[in-house]
Simulated scan of single mutants.
Amino acid sequence: VKDMADVVQQPGDYSFSYNTHVDGIMGFEVIKDVITEINFEKKKFIFYPKTLDINKRTPDNKKTFLNKLLPIGSGSLEMFAEAPSGKKLTLALDTGNSFYATTHKDVLERVGLWSPGKEAKYMTSAGVASGVVDAFYMKMPAMKIFNVPVAESHWDIIDLPSSSAEGDGTIGFGFLKNFNIVIDYERRRVWMDNFTGQVVNEAEGDIGIVATNNRKTKRTVIFKVSPDTPAAAAGIKEGDEVLSVDGKELIDVGYDRFKNLMRGKVGEKVKLAISRNGTLMRYELERKSLMNTTD
């Protein structure tokens, strides 16, 4: 590979998010001129000669799917998802994001899945290119994602209008890990083989707090407590410092890692040691499903 540049950043949160060792993320630029298979089943990349034409393959639309890339996005792979209304969402295929799927509240309004003016419950935060923004979780109805029928799924919703005039969001690793994916960018085709037989994601439990590290004190400080959540019911407050989670001391733990520490199976309990103005308090909270539902 010639004339490539790399960006160095801390990989710790990558490894924690994916639950495996990760040294970094390889971007789209590396594969755009090569027919590439991302084989999650065997955990490897396979590079094919340009004589391979996946457009000649016949999908059964049950296990195998052939998608056409949309003629937008110079540095992304954009394809359609379809809401129950039949209206389309333009979503990027992005194995580099650990979540299942994300979109914006105004997109949900456009496709008939959210009423204008309706307030979301269980507000949390999400990290985007511009920083940390308000977000919420949502249980989605039966729909098609890249032509794949999905009976039910749970998405991250950004509580801000989309910053792109073309794209509506992203389909991430949580969905794509179930497929071996062959990408032919030149012919604008993507082949997907559902080797796991799974496409849905279980609703994760949470307790309703968001925190990040204070660079001066190296402590993890809570900056959001969502109403009607286990944390709010227990009396946890914004500004409280989280000293440990399940007995493990937190030192310089940032937003992404803390978010993953809080999430887990519904019904599981998490133990927190919290300092408020120098007073130590201990909590044991049960994770709940903090999901919004469609209209």
Rank of each mutant, 00 (worst) to 15 (best):
K2R: 11
M79Y: 07
M123K: 14
P149V: 03
K216M: 10
A231T: 00
S76M: 05
Y18H: 06
D295W: 04
L70S: 06
T58K: 08
F65P: 00
G264A: 10
M140N: 08
Y185W: 05
E202A: 14
I171E: 06
M143N: 12
S85P: 02
G112A: 02
T229A: 03
T64K: 02
N214T: 06
Y122S: 12
M26N: 03
Q9T: 13
D240H: 03
S244L: 06
G172I: 10
A211V: 00
A83S: 09
N178W: 04
L160K: 12
T103Y: 12
Y122V: 04
V190P: 09
L69K: 09
D240E: 08
I274L: 07
D23T: 14
T294Y: 08
L89R: 10
R215I: 10
R276P: 02
I171H: 04
D193W: 02
N61G: 00
K177F: 03
L261C: 03
E109D: 06
N214P: 10
D206A: 14
A234Q: 08
D23W: 11
D53V: 06
H104V: 03
N194W: 05
E109P: 14
P149D: 02
I145N: 00
G117P: 12
E152P: 02
L66G: 02
R188G: 02
R187I: 00
E29K: 09
V200W: 04
R215L: 12
F80G: 00
E204H: 13
N67R: 08
V128C: 02
V245K: 03
